[in-house]
Amino acid sequence: MKIEDLELPKQTHEIFNILARGHFISSNGTKDGMGRLYDILNDPVNFEKLQDYFNVLRYKIEKGNNYFYFSKLNEPPSITEKKLETFEKYIDIIDLFASLDNKITIGSRFRPSEIAEECNANVRLKQKLAKIPLYRSENFLNKIREICDMLTRDSFLELEDENTETYKVLDAYSYLLDIINAITIFGQPNYSENTNDNLSDNIDININPN
């Protein structure tokens, strides 16, 4: 089949612009009509056409849990110091988010000032934040802002309201969680084996974690 015969959706250019920059397209994203672009990609007919089209450019669309991203066709992933450093930093950040009272999960909205306040009031969080290697070290708020900037650049968050500085956690964030899940701690069973066991009991425990 020729590319001209594919009848690509008119948003192909926008989709390529986002994905080729290395960004994710999440279903709950609102900026630049991201939700709409997700729906277009999520349509199996469109997906197949776009996959064929982008394959010519040696890109492959990868589908995750409510998100899409680009990988390179016929090019194995590499390992670099920077890549390891980035993900070590992500472990620090997810650990911080996990330790908050009001846990940040997909769809959560939060303001950096809220997290900074909680960190100020909690010694454990204060220590965690202090240990994350960041450039802006003047105060907690700026550190949290730097984390948010980084996550936004990598399209895991979006700045939903600039006036109130409210961020929203996008579906692509589950990519990071999936990586954490994929890592095996030697001598321990993998978490995914336990997730479906006795769900309702687990939920009750987690509704009141304190």
């Binding site: 290395g22 890109y59 990868e62 992933p77 390992i79 890549k83 993900f87 990586i179 890592i183």
Partner: peptide, 12 residues
């Protein structure tokens, strides 16, 4: 695990 990650953003 990190070596296997394939998004173009993390592979330079």
């Amino acid at each position: 695990i990190i070596e296997k990650l394939n998004p173009i953003r993390f592979n330079g």
